[in-house]
Nucleic acid binder design. Structure first.
Ligand SMILES: [Mn+2]
Ligand SMILES: [Mn+2]
Ligand SMILES: [Mn+2]
Ligand SMILES: [Mn+2]
Lengths: 219, 219
DNA sequence: TTAAATTTTTAGGTTAATCTAAAAATTATT
DNA sequence: AATAATTTTTAGATTAACCTAAAAATTTAA
């Protein structure tokens, strides 16, 4: 069945919200991520339910059907593969690629996606450490922790970020916090939960709890 | 000013028609290439004129303004660069790339286009021999002849095609008629204007006038 | 140079996606 | 349990892009 960019974006947003909870997703939550009004969301949910991509009962919230999940994962796959392409092949920085990938994720050609995947060497994660679903829509399981949950004196490795915003990514770059960086947690300050940490064995610096919450690490 | 995919496609079609003539372009001609109705074209031409991208007076036909020309050329540039990418980097055949490029040509990022151009080695032509406008929108001048206009016993080189259709391109591939092929015209048959030609010094074969008309060569 | 044929435009509708404002349902609070 | 607050849906419009049918303008032919 034909699908519009807008419908794809709704499915993607419902998918994203569903990753964080097992509850049904509220109209308002979708509206906020879609940057639209609840009334528009209601219209669209009816339409997506008619097409069989979501299960929706009014006032009860929405969740993806098996088919909707498959579509959402294929868009996520495209988004993340294109981000790898933009960074690895086109030389963009990790804070510059999200908006372009938002466009590229809607390009429709299975052949192209699979050739791109191969060309990039079948990457498991995108430039932000997010897992890339394979051809069958299976997401590799990556059990990462938030840096903010790690105890003092531990050593860990920066594996990803929990946020794609350009300002956040640019800050990390400025602090030398890149994917793969080795982090030695020297001390956690009780007062503001800021972390005194050495990055790749350099002289330790302070990073805020707010930043640490958005950094994903492997111990 | 914001531009929709549809508007971009109209500008591209008007541009294509304008290459073949210095006359104003008729509503019907646009309708045919856009695969839509004349009434819809009239609506859109009024809109494009309001935006300053075409000069249009009712019943008098349409032509691109300087700004419209610039937009059209930037879309052509993107289309052809992506086609090069698909063939050179993704390993597609020349008959498989047009439809995908129709989608990719609407991706909006000057940075990406210019990085792609560089990554591809600043190609002058696409996989069909069509010239690629540079960053400033200047088309390299390629003075090619139609194979159907070459006299017998001449030797020439296949530089491009005058048609992108998959069936035509697949036929050329089957006949070993690829870009850069050396063509020795042995004889032209007066009856059906078919051509007896040797391709890359192989045993000569017959090709129809219809095919020859759509092959571009350099002597 | 009038009449016929063709092209193009206008008139009036449709569909997808959005909006605001008001009504209805659900959830939270006394 | 009743009321208040919040969330969600419905009602009614708007805009972009398209359609068919009819009217108007232009071009061609008699
Ligand atoms: Mn992204
Ligand atoms: Mn990402
Ligand atoms: Mn093409
Ligand atoms: Mn081409």
């Amino acid at each position: 069945m034909a699908i519009s960019f807008t419908e794809e974006n709704y499915l993607k947003v419902i998918h994203r919200l569903s990753e964080a909870t097992s509850e049904d997703i509220s109209t308002n939550a979708v509206a906020e991520l879609m940057q639209t009004k609840a009334a528009s969301v209601t219209d669209m949910l009816r339409k997506l339910a008619d097409k069989g991509w979501v299960n929706y009962q009014k006032y009860q919230g929405v969740r993806l059907s098996a088919e909707g999940e498959k579509i959402a994962l294929s868009i996520v796959r495209k988004h993340r593969l294109w981000e790898v392409f933009l960074v690895d092949k086109m030389g963009f920085n990790w804070d510059e690629v999200h908006e372009i990938a938002e466009q590229l994720e809607h390009i429709e050609s299975d052949q192209l996606v699979n050739k791109l995947d191969e060309y990039l060497g079948f990457p498991k994660t995108d430039p932000h450490g997010d897992p890339i679903p394979n051809k069958e829509g299976v997401l590799p399981e990556l059990a990462y922790s938030h840096l903010s949950d790690i105890k003092a004196t531990k050593t860990c490795k920066l594996m990803g970020v929990a946020q794609d915003s350009a300002v956040f990514l640019q800050l990390l770059t400025k602090l030398n916090l890149n994917l793969g960086a080795k982090l030695d947690i020297k001390e956690i300050n009780e007062f503001d939960r800021s972390i005194f940490v050495s990055i790749n064995d350099a002289a330790p610096i302070f990073i805020s709890h707010e930043v640490a919450k958005n950094i994903l690490v492997k111990i």
